[in-house]
């Protein structure tokens, strides 16, 4: 409950920061909107219509009031509700982020476990090298590599677009790989840490087989930090989605943000950044709650 209460002021500060950053931007949004030269008179009238001449503090509260009602303003370029545009794009980002997360768990957790069990073996070096590669590759580059090899050369998968499950495979693997690296590294170090505990020695000394020791005793505790990182993954997946979506032509929230930058569509950028940040805050909240639920040793302070 306490965590939930802390999230509210953070959320407020986030909205304030985004508002200030995007509303002090030099250049008249009205002049940007109008393709042709218009008279100063018209510009002034449109400015007044959009309440752009009000003091920023009033505009901020108006913006906040709208936000509370789920109204993120109107896109300059598309002249449509930002909320609608984002909600329309969001399911696609969800599909991408969730499949990428799935890839990262399916690959990362077993890789981390195997590496920890066979520490300093060839297997360990292979998986850790693979993980570090995933963390070190720029997502836009691995995306292009995959497109080149699997779409253009081999023709197994479609290059870009979003018309069915086949279109999700490449983006999910590309985006999931970098997360898989993080998860594998975390699983490994966490399992190695747990294996040093007394209760593991007890389990071994009573004659339990190594496999039973690991699956029955060690894994439960070792995977705790991994579970929380899963919720925190939201942030890195959303950052990654911005790039993956623009390379693979998926019309999700990340793509909306990139298009908004290109057309200098401030309300749309503001809306998509806020939306993503709210998701991240929610993710952190879920991580905290999960952690205290799963591990009774940890009770959140107060």
């Amino acid at each position: 409950m306490n965590r939930l209460l802390i999230s509210i002021p953070i959320l407020l500060c986030v909205t304030f920061l985004v508002f200030i950053l995007l509303n002090v931007v030099p250049g008249d949004p009205v002049a940007l909107m109008m393709k042709e030269k218009v008279s100063a008179d018209v510009v002034a009238r449109v400015r007044a219509q959009m309440h752009l001449d009000d003091p920023w503090i009033i505009r901020y509260f108006r913006f906040l009031w709208g936000l509370l009602h789920g109204d993120l303003g109107t896109s300059y370029k598309l002249q449509r509700s930002v909320t609608d545009l984002i909600l329309q794009a969001f399911p696609r980002t969800m599909v991408l982020a969730f499949s990428a997360a799935l890839v990262s768990w399916i690959v990362g957790i077993p890789a981390g476990i195997l590496s920890a069990i066979r520490q300093y073996s060839v297997t360990d070096y292979f998986f850790m090298g693979f993980s570090l590669a995933g963390v070190s590759m720029p997502v836009f580059w691995s995306a292009l590599l995959f497109q080149y090899v699997f779409a253009l050369k081999l023709g197994w998968l479609p290059v870009a677009g979003f018309y069915g499950w086949r279109y999700v495979i490449m983006p999910a693997i590309v985006l999931g790989w970098s997360s898989a690296g993080l998860i594998a590294r975390l699983t490994r170090s966490s399992l190695l840490d747990v294996m040093r505990n007394d209760y593991i020695r007890t389990a071994r000394s009573k004659g339990a087989r190594e496999l039973a020791v690991i699956t029955g005793h060690a894994l439960k505790n070792a995977l705790l930090p991994v579970v929380t990182i899963m919720a925190i993954q939201v942030a890195s997946l959303l950052s990654g989605a911005v790039i993956t979506e623009s390379v693979f032509g998926i019309p999700g929230v990340g793509r909306v943000a990139v298009d908004a930058i290109k057309s200098r569509d401030m309300p749309l950028l503001q809306g998509s950044v806020l939306f993503a940040t709210i998701l991240v805050i929610l993710g952190n909240l879920v991580a905290d709650i999960l952690y205290s639920l799963l591990d009774p040793r940890i009770r959140l302070e107060k």
Partner: peptide
Amino acid sequence: MADVVMAFPSLLLAIVVMYT
């Protein structure tokens, strides 16, 4: 303040700063 900065997906915050 650190909490607020860390609440953002880092790439998006950088994008907003660069936009401004």
